[in-house]
Amino acid sequence: MTQRTDDFEVPLWRLGILLSALSVAGAIAAVQPIEFPHNKHVAKGLDCIDCHITVDTEAAAGLPSVRKCMLCHSKFAKTGPGVQKLLVYSKQRREVPWERVYMFEPEAQVKFQHAAHIWAKVECKTCHGEVEKMTVAQLAVRHTMGRCLTCHRERHATEDCAACHF
């Protein structure tokens, strides 16, 4: 469940985020339907790619379906407030409506290729911050074009507009 751009109407408050994004806003805590503790899962030995499976093959990193969560949570770790909510979703056969934390504006028409960056050995935390220490993923790094470009320049990657906007 990644891109919900098409139904993403532009309400006033989102515009507020847009403007505040330009200013040096602190990390905005996205309100998620389930308080998913990244740190606990990483502690259990899970790696990013176990849930975001297509990060090294496709452009989108992909989010796990509720079916994947149930693989473990139906067998063990059945207690805990978050898991109860998960069970509700799973029973209704509905995906968990995760709140998008990182997103380029639709007007920017950016086609971010996760796969290409993984092949170039770019660490997850360079763009997403220390997620393994967080509970719910926070907007730790503001994805602006300037930041992308400086990083591209350091690593002599392409600066071609068509690399991301095509």
Binding site: E107, Q109, D160, C161, A162, H165, F166
Partner: peptide, 17 residues
């Protein structure tokens, strides 16, 4: 610079620009 010539010889039209 919405349209420019990239290294691969294509005349690119950057729609968002």
């Amino acid at each position: 610079y919405a349209t420019y010539h990239n290294a691969e010889g294509l005349n690119v039209q950057v729609y968002n620009r």
